[in-house]
Amino acid sequence: MRKIVESVYWVGAVDWDRRLFDSLVPLPDGTTYNAYLVEGSEKTALIDAVDPDMVDTLLGHLDGVEKLDYVISQHAEQDHSGTIALVLDLYPEAKVVTNAKAKSMLMDLLLIPDDKFIVVGDGETLSLGDKTLTFILTPWVHWPETMSTYLAEDKILFSCDFFGSHIATSDLFVRDQGRVHEAAKRYFGEIMMPFRTIIAKNLEKLGPYDIRMIAPSHGQIYDSPGWIIDAYRDWVSGVAHNLVAFPFVSMHGSTRLMVDHLAAALSERDVRVELFNLAVTDIGKLAMSLVDAGTIVLGTPTVLAGPHPMAAYAAFLANALRPKAKYLSIVGSYGWGGKTVETLAGMIPNLKVEVLDPVLCKGLPTDDTYGALDRLADAIAAKHKESGFQR
């Protein structure tokens, strides 16, 4: 148990070893599962729990806490809720405080009985005596039932996954802003980006609250939260950057020659490029690039008349994450023919992009191929300038 302010404690767990989340999301720096204990003069509340693998750590922190009145569940996903049933076994008098959608999910996921719940609505308050909790519904950050909790007397926002980051560290508060900014951006790109228009509305919803501290459910506590709020405003905005995210794969070198030429041509035209060799890349780094990119270019050879499977996965990922990019193109080589462009174009219905003329060549690129790549670079640079992308 670690003290945040008077009568408010961190009782979560640090997972130094975890390297994959949901069997999908890379965790190069591990993660934390944050739970918080708020002791009022009359009642005591636990805000969220931890992943089931870390239950012994949570229960160790709670050792000596004689009475628990409320378990506030802000999000039904099991890394936050999975140990709630065990907490209720330890404190049978405690009630689960959550919203109606979360209640339904928790009953399905954890088999918690109906009579253990207190359902709260948006803006409703709960008194702990000398401390008051206000519940703020923040749907689709990143599930439909998510909410945040505001502790009025201490001006702390317990934000759940909102503003979260996957980092294992012994620091309770943010002390390395650069490292946390990168981790939070990765977290946003991988998890939050599909819901950025809704998240923008939830950011506005926080406006009336005087927030001196943000305590998320993953990552460190922001004791100076202004910069992460500003970062989120940028990430959810519709304004892209003067950046090309360029995932590619090459089997025999022809596509790589095209990728390198186009990347150099874009740089000469003052367009920033980030390359991602899909055979070796950290997919989280690609997600971070997609947060800002004004243009996406996919580089792929043709395999069995279609795109390389890794390029197809990159297209699937971009379609799922719904980034703010306005333009897209495809470059690559083929041996005898195929439908690479048509296949990839059919995989991105969620992207509201203008498709710029693809450049495909048969075998090794020729002078004509390089000329076409130069023209594509011209087109991308002109589009970025016309669109007023951030530099």
Rank of each mutant, 00 (worst) to 15 (best):
P194S: 02
A314Y: 08
D122V: 12
A312Y: 07
E182L: 15
A305Y: 13
D161N: 10
R18I: 14
K3H: 13
D368C: 05
F163A: 07
A13G: 04
L88Q: 07
G129A: 03
D368G: 03
E182R: 14
H181A: 14
Y187S: 06
V359P: 00
I191G: 03
N202C: 11
V96Y: 04
S104P: 03
D51N: 12
E39F: 05
A315G: 12
P139I: 15
Y232R: 07
L364W: 15
A152Y: 09
L278P: 00
A200D: 01
T132Y: 02
T31L: 13
M192W: 03
A318Y: 05
M193Y: 08
L304M: 13
E153C: 13
G207N: 14
L133E: 01
G226W: 15
D29N: 04
R269K: 15
W227P: 01
Q78G: 09
H181D: 14
V273I: 12
V341N: 00
A287M: 09
R233D: 07
R18C: 11
V180R: 05
R179M: 09
M54Y: 10
G299Q: 04
F188R: 02
S329R: 06
W143G: 12
S41L: 08
V331Y: 07
S81M: 04
A240Q: 10
I221R: 02
S104I: 13
Y70P: 01
L137Y: 13
S159D: 04
K383C: 06
E354C: 08
R391I: 13
H384S: 05
I221C: 04
T197I: 11
V236L: 07
K385V: 13
F21E: 08
R19S: 15
G123R: 12
